[in-house]
Simulated scan of single mutants.
Amino acid sequence: MMLRKRLLFLVGVMFFYYCSAGVSLAEDMVCGKLNGHVIEVSRKYSAFWPEYEGESSWGQGFIHNKKGCDANLESWSMVMTWPEMLPADHATYFVQALRFEGVDITLKPLRRPNNDMSYLLDFFLWETPGQWKEYVIFDESLGLLYVDGKDRVFAEGLNRYYWQNSGGEVSIVFECLWLPKENRLYTCEGAYVLQEIDTLVRFRFTPEKMKEWKAVVGAIRKFVLDKVK
């Protein structure tokens, strides 16, 4: 009974979001611009409303923001199954939350002058003691460097951070959160720049998929570029 009420609540919230964002449930597509590139995707992928340039979605005036293919996007989140890359069931996504078995991605226009993700790695490791950072390990199976570092919010938390160096820059970075009660990692978030359209891509999946990170990045690249009009 509680689960049924929760699902009904989520459906109501999603209906409100779509209507407030100017996305009709009768429409098949959601559209917008990322750094001048027009992208159009089936609304079935959007568990949240897209953020267009203008008033924040948490502000009262956001419903008046320009929308559609001629409007600039600030953030666009989508959820999909893995490895099919098909629209995920939204109720399942909300129920599973950080343990979502598919992949959720967020696209944002690139605001920095280059593709180096060092700034994000530094942010992730902000609370980690300097001496800890000396114990960087290379995981040959993943082709990534990693180090265990302190959680930025919970002082006792310990997470794992992966990254790849390419040409003296950090090309991709991951933050995998630790679940102390179960003594394991439970969610990983990656970030990199999709250079073809100067777009920051942030994506999340379960830690088991870290061994497939290259395939996930490749699938996201193909999915997004195929949607550029």
Rank of each mutant, 00 (worst) to 15 (best):
L3R: 15
L86Q: 15
L121S: 04
P109F: 09
S20E: 05
N35D: 09
V201I: 12
R111L: 07
F205C: 15
S171E: 12
I172M: 11
L179K: 14
C188G: 02
G168I: 13
T199V: 08
V136M: 10
N35L: 08
N115D: 12
R4E: 12
V23A: 00
E175F: 04
L144Y: 06
R43L: 09
R204P: 03
A88E: 03
K181V: 05
I197G: 12
A191I: 08
L107R: 02
W76N: 00
E196S: 15
G130R: 05
A215D: 15
R112M: 01
R184E: 07
E101Q: 12
Y146E: 11
A91K: 11
W49C: 01
V224D: 06
P207N: 06
W213L: 11
E51W: 01
R6D: 10
V170C: 04
F123E: 14
E55G: 03
D148Y: 07
F223A: 05
E156C: 11
F16I: 15
S24N: 13
E53I: 02
D28S: 04
V23K: 00
L125H: 08
C31I: 07
L225E: 07
N35P: 06
L185C: 09
L194G: 01
S56I: 02
S46N: 12
V147C: 14
A88R: 00
P109L: 03
F174I: 02
D28L: 02
S20Y: 13
I220S: 12
F174M: 13
R43Y: 10
N165H: 04
Y17P: 02
K229L: 12
N65H: 01
M29G: 04
W58E: 03
V23E: 01
S46V: 09
I63V: 03
M85W: 07
L120P: 01
R221L: 05
P207W: 08
W126V: 13
Y17I: 06
Q195N: 09
C176L: 09
E84M: 06
I39E: 01
D151S: 11
W163L: 05
K33A: 06
L179F: 13
L194T: 01
H64P: 04
T92V: 14
T106A: 02
T199L: 05
D122S: 03
L194C: 03
E182I: 09
Y161E: 00
K181Q: 06
P83V: 10
V95C: 07
M14T: 14
Q60K: 09
F15S: 13
T92A: 12
E175S: 15
G61S: 09
F15P: 06
C31F: 02
K108G: 02
S166N: 12
E101H: 04
G59H: 02
H90G: 14
V147G: 13
Y18P: 00
W178L: 10
L177P: 02
V217W: 06
V41C: 08
Y161I: 06
I105R: 04
L177A: 01
F123H: 12
P83N: 08
E196P: 05
I197F: 13
N65D: 02
R152S: 11
A88K: 06
V173W: 08
L177S: 03
Y186I: 05
F123T: 10
F154G: 08
K33I: 00
F203G: 05
E127L: 15
S75K: 03
G54Y: 03
G12V: 04
E53V: 07
F124C: 02
K227E: 14
L185D: 09
V170I: 10
D104P: 00
R111S: 04
S118P: 00
